[in-house]
Amino acid sequence: MRTSLLQARSLGKRFGTVEAVKDATFDVHPNAITAFLGENGAGKTTVLKLVLGFLSPDSGRFSFSTEKIGYVPERPAFFPWLRGDQILRCTARNFGLAERRLDRIIDDLSRQIGFDPCLLSRRVHTYSLGNQKKFSYLQSLLVRPDLLIVDEPFSALDPLSIKKTRDLFLELKGEGKTLLLSSHLISEMERICDEFIVIKKGCVIVQDDISRLKDEFFFVSLPKSGWKRGSLDLAPSHIRETESGIQMLVAQSRLRESSVSWPEGTEIRHPDLESLYFFFSSL
């Protein structure tokens, strides 16, 4: 059984009459990049805020197997009376980092994320949005987190910074770190993530390993006419009907073994994250 760095079970959260999170059960596995996907208002940020302790769950529970957690919010905000270097020194002191090595660590991290260290002598709220985001990465990485949680990792970043951030995530994973990234940018997530979690209307509807699905499954799209229900014994979660036809996620082994004759117009291909996301989120 795989260990989890973060384990959430049946998390629930209500804001008045709105049930923002109903049943969020998922695991974040170590040394992996997990994409947390869902449409606007699905409950991604609320779930992140629940596990980070900014909100209190009404039901369910969660646990971390590490205390070293980093967090980069979607729109970071900083005390307007503090300069960048003062916030970093506060952070270092809070997490018990040695003062004498701090400048070198800050320089190294700044280079890694493409942040100009000259900005540190200014108050952070005067930075551009992109630089505030980079500063938030810098602050979180300073604590050497085992688990880095990022809400919309690429928002407010320019294309070059997006590339640098993507490379940074892969470097962190290479160093044995774990990342939980909540994002709308499926194409970016596809390039870096190992696992994905889909949340819809406050419920986690699927969590799986992307490469496993890519290696072991085919994505089959076929017209409604000519398809006999029950020809393939599929789990209900692996088949859906749309207006244009039927979509199925079929294990490659089953496809090879079966003697199903596919109707004309059937398309069989390897799944990608985007098709998996739309498939699961429309179930």
């Binding site: 805020k49 980070l52 900014f54 967090y71 970071p76 905000a77 987190p145």
Partner: peptide
């Protein structure tokens, strides 16, 4: 202002430290 501005949604204050 500190509660509603988002300043406390920071790595310094996770785990209810705010």
């Amino acid at each position: 202002d500190e509660i509603h501005s988002g300043f406390l949604e920071n790595v310094l204050f996770i785990g209810g430290r705010f």
